[in-house]
Amino acid sequence: MSETSFQVSVGEAFTAEDVAEAAEKPTEQVARYALRLGDDALILAQQLGWWVARAPELEEDVALTNIALDQLGHARAFLSYAGLAWGKTEDDLAYFRGESEFVNAQLFEQPNGDFAQTIARQFVASHFQFELYRQLQGSANATLAAIAAKALKEVDYHRDHADQWMLRLSLGTDESRRRMLRGLEVIWPFVEELFRDDELTDSLKGVAAAPSSLLEGFEKSTAAVFARCEIEIPAGFVARGGGRLGQHTEFLGHLLAEMQVLAREHPGATW
């Protein structure tokens, strides 16, 4: 293949650097909200990165890693923006906060499990984030709206990726279906927390996307996939939640230890 056969360009996009340089300092409330969305994306990116050389096929390594990098991009934008309120960089927030200072929903820290469990988590995460960013792109806060508008297109693809695998695993072999159902059983208790309003989201009307307002769209789009998968919508046990308050399941501490060790052992390290 000759080098001139493709026109290659980086293209224009809204980046974390744009946010750090151009955005106005957010209020305390907006910053706390941006931190939640950034933590969701950051923790999911870290979990997905584990798959980089472990997916069922090389092609799937690349697919999951692309998704991880998209999530990391969203995290960088949200954390950069939140950090403006407190004079902190995205790295300060990612590497030098303790477990109880992370405000991601507990869904995102749930372990990869097998491939089916990862797909179950992706299915919930991407359908939730799609509804979230679709609403947030109309936010009265221009920076949140711009980050959401860019993220929406990427999350739309993540949603499609998860749907495709849900279908294939559910309708594939007895073993793949068993694993898909098991994955959903593990993940579904963490769905409810995503749609809880609280004092912070109530105080940001027109700026934040009220979590409870996203539920209808989520239920509709996931129900359509469940029907095609010939799976009943999971019900039953609901996890206690509390991720938005810094209360986490046993998995986040281990994840953070691995994610933060390099930055903490070698402050200011670059390569």
């Binding site: 293949m1 056969s5 493709f6 026109q7 290659v8 360009s9 980086v10 293209g11 096929e57 090389l58 092609e59 799937e60 690349v62 697919a63 692309n66 499609d160 990726h161 495709q164 294939r168």
Partner: peptide
Amino acid sequence: LHAGSLHAPDAEMALRNARDLYTRRNE
């Protein structure tokens, strides 16, 4: 133009894998 080859379980997944492998740099 022929860009290369890949593995996929079916045509729909092949399209998606191709998107991930061969259009990562806006090609």
